[in-house]
Design a protein around this nucleic acid. Sequence first.
DNA 1: ACGGCCGTTGATAACGTTTGCCGAAATTCA
DNA 2: TGAATTTCGGCAAACGTTATCAACGGCCGT
Lengths: 347, 347
Amino acid sequence: MTLRDVARASGCSVATVSRVLAGTRPVGAETARRVREAAERLGYRPNHAARALRSRATGTVGLVLPQITNPFYPALVRELTHALHAEGRAVLLADCDDDPVAEAEYIDDLLSRRVDALLVIPADERRSRDAVAAAAARVPLVLMDRGCGPGIADSVAVDNSAGMALVLDHLAATGRRRVCFLGADGTASAAAERRAAYAAGSGALDAAAPGRIALGDFSVEWGRAAVDLVWDARPDALVCANDLIAVGALQRLQQLGADVPGDVAVTGFDDIPMAALSAPGITTVRQPVAELAAEATQLLNRRLASPGSEGPQRAIRLAPELVVRESSAPGAGERGLEGASTAVAVS
Amino acid sequence: MTLRDVARASGCSVATVSRVLAGTRPVGAETARRVREAAERLGYRPNHAARALRSRATGTVGLVLPQITNPFYPALVRELTHALHAEGRAVLLADCDDDPVAEAEYIDDLLSRRVDALLVIPADERRSRDAVAAAAARVPLVLMDRGCGPGIADSVAVDNSAGMALVLDHLAATGRRRVCFLGADGTASAAAERRAAYAAGSGALDAAAPGRIALGDFSVEWGRAAVDLVWDARPDALVCANDLIAVGALQRLQQLGADVPGDVAVTGFDDIPMAALSAPGITTVRQPVAELAAEATQLLNRRLASPGSEGPQRAIRLAPELVVRESSAPGAGERGLEGASTAVAVS
DNA sequence: ACGGCCGTTGATAACGTTTGCCGAAATTCA
DNA sequence: TGAATTTCGGCAAACGTTATCAACGGCCGT
């Protein structure tokens, strides 16, 4: 089951067998045939551990994520693993449970397992920085989805500003005028960028819109709570910073008896599976998951190709796509001008 | 950065350094201290590749699943990775996209990467069997969630019969009498067992209930379609074989204008995140995910401890828990005895 | 006081590959 | 035809560990 056995069986040396199997150097046609035949017959399987030891490359990539149970990530993980497997690499998975300390430990463990490269979705913009920077100095590393401070490593993410602009344009085009933003605070890039893009773009609808915001976190619970905070402003559209917030908002609105989209439109971000399955379906911004994965692996390959970490860092932003569903369908006929929609007391 | 360096720095031999760092054999207190100090000072990180080559164990477990985007699996993956990492193992992830052929390839790749063991959720009851059986002959292997024919390997899964019994008892206790089953066909264990358990248990509510079933697959789309197939029977409860079917059924019922739970109760299975977030929340059977993961790793450890594959195969079934939500709340007052609930035409 | 035993350490041979180097044969060119 | 060049294959040295074996103390028992 080792190279020696194949060599013996095919009547040549281990070196030759290695060469024909790895295709690293040309070898005689007849010899190659004999070797391949013998390898096949003996069911030879190369030993990755030995190969890794000798050639100092494991063919393995570490994937570190904050929370696999965050409904946006499974699709991303799927695309990443497929893209990497297609190149013959295997994926070591680490879920750090939103804890930067655990994240640092996992990164350390992956490095000592000699991964060729790392894909990291940092758990925290600030507190992940040191560990990520240290890791980036040792192996090629690509940040995904969230940032981690400037100049740390290559990164791939959706263009949050463009996505938010798509939402605001859509709402403007369908006659919404009193817009509120249900977002997330903190320095995480997705939160900050979407927040900023709303602030920048919503003024076009209504000069007061940039001020009508409520900030919490990226959760359903916050979505529910946030509705109550902005309901006094009698909005005709709630722009949510992600789909979970939108789901929560929708639930609270239904509790309040508000008609969606008749009285108020709701939009999300990410296009998690639940956005399509909620009733009504949630208008949202779809991240180009497959393309994000492809860009990330391509970035890794570029770094892996050139031994030293040559070339400037790249920050790739991919344009998202607006997915219009029922939650933002234009209201039938006149849209409420000034609180014409049914006022409902907060319970 | 290698054992040699640490040996030189601490003034002893590589053998001694290896021993103190691996703790494999007792070593003098003073020497141990010096070695540890030197290792710390030099920032020594053991080379897993070399270790794997020499000791023929990689400290790595392969996790093969059919579809990471299936909303039930992220939570399971999370618990499994945490349990394994806690034991110092790393997890190689493979998503085979519900394709038994790809599954076989991934298993092969993981084996040639010398994983110490495999955790497999088989993609197909029949077509996964050969690859899984072959793998089980080479390394310890635990099947999870779904079966793969008898006598293949150790397995861990929820007790589907017990779960279905919980649902039926609950519906009986809350006065439901005309029950229908929206299930999945095929030989997959979850589908078959839940089907069988419904058939066995529903007779207690109504002699005709075991006959009122509609079989499709485990999808939201099927849930929507299935409602129309059973609606003529004027059910007061729809028992769904998993939560996705329940979500679909709920959507269709709302389209039809049926009141849930007033006219008809809906129950699911698995307790995926969406079950809690749907409106109304779906009564469902929660799988003990953390315990499933713990049992699986324990099974692996048992096999890894004894070199040969000693001991009989174990098939562990864990009892699930009923989670009652709004979708099955008892109706206010009298429950319809004989189609007294509002009849709604199928659109 | 001497032989044997235990506890501790060092040399050294693997583990299965890849790869640099070298020789032999085959081929080309003058 | 002789020399230069290529092609092909083998030898052997790594890669960084762990495991085996022997050696060297010191300690105890008689």
